[in-house]
């Protein structure tokens, strides 16, 4: 078992009376890329804020490199590369000033890694970040994190506001870097296609709870969509182990971790009348919808 870089234990948080989640537990082992997937408002940014010590949870604790995230030492902060939602950076600086600024704080600073990415932007080094597009800003933010050479990268909604080209560039660069350098990454995004190409493990959240926590390959191997015609679809709602059943004009669609044969016998046991069940493999996005529902 690899050493856990991040450990969240029994995290519970409320905004006023609204429960975001209760007893959230997860770990990120060294060298793994964990994606936190969830719809808007399920607590992705809340988790990132707690992890970085910008929010005190109602109860529970987060540890980064064994240190409480509420009081991170300078040494631990140096090991963590943080991308804030919206690729926020010091927009009053230009790309060469911001590189000089950050280089003073990180002894392992890799100027070449930053400028390699900046070359792709084809912009004047004197151009201010405030005058850049969202895509260009995302590359500046990523370049700064790569140059920092952190052991853990925390990226909050990195795909926000990016067009497909920039999203792909971001994912390719990040995934290549993380795998080559054995970096640990914790990432959130609401664009699930991007995550499928990037992450090793996924943690899928719905309102107030975790619905699934697995390696992506395990999830996609075991979680399937089943389609069939059904005479009494209302009976399906009573069956556990089935996620989000939907029936439109007699065509029923369910999601489950069960094998096809097990599902068939479960249906028979519960007196659900079906014709032949068709099994379909899923993309991560479809699995996400299957677990959390369309609405």
């Amino acid at each position: 078992m690899q050493q856990a870089i991040v450990e969240c234990k029994n995290l519970t948080h409320y905004y006023g009376k609204r429960c975001i989640y209760e007893n959230l537990n997860f770990e990120i082992p060294q060298g793994r890329i964990l994606g936190l997937l969830g719809k808007n408002g399920t607590g992705k940014t809340t988790t990132i804020n707690i992890l970085n010590g910008y929010l005190k949870p109602r109860s529970g604790e987060c540890l980064m490199f064994g240190e409480s995230s509420a009081n991170l030492s300078s040494e631990t902060k140096r090991k963590v590369g943080l991308l804030i939602e919206g690729h926020i950076q010091y927009s009053f600086m230009n790309i060469s000033e911001i590189e000089k600024f950050y280089s003073a704080f990180y002894p392992k600073w890799r100027k070449d890694a930053y400028y390699e990415l900046m070359k792709l932007l084809k912009i004047d080094p004197k151009q201010k970040i405030s005058r850049m597009s969202c895509g260009q800003r995302s590359q500046v933010a990523l370049g700064l994190i790569l140059a920092q050479d952190p052991e853990l990268l925390i990226l909050d909604d990195f795909s926000m506001g990016l067009d497909p080209g920039y999203r792909m560039l971001f994912v390719d660069y990040l995934s290549e870097y993380a795998k080559a350098e054995n970096k640990t990454v914790f990432v959130t995004s609401h664009i699930i296609q991007d995550m499928e190409r990037l992450i090793d493990d996924c943690l899928i959240m719905d309102y107030g709870r975790i619905v699934m926590q697995k390696p992506v390959t395990d999830l996609l191997e075991s979680f399937k969509r089943f389609k069939f015609n059904c005479e009494n679809p209302e009976a399906i709602n009573e069956i556990s182990d089935i996620y989000n059943p939907v029936t439109i004009k007699g065509n029923t669609e369910v999601y489950s971790l069960l094998a096809k044969e097990d599902l068939e016998s479960l249906m028979r046991k519960n007196n659900v009348m079906t014709n032949e069940i068709q099994e379909e493999s899923l993309s991560l996005e479809e699995a996400f919808i299957g677990l959390t529902g369309k609405y």
């Binding site: 300078s74 804030i84 926020i88």
Partner: peptide
Amino acid sequence: VPEMIQKRIKLSLHLPLS
């Protein structure tokens, strides 16, 4: 004001200093 817009102060507080 530039620090508080979009909670940019998080960047400053994440710098490896107390």
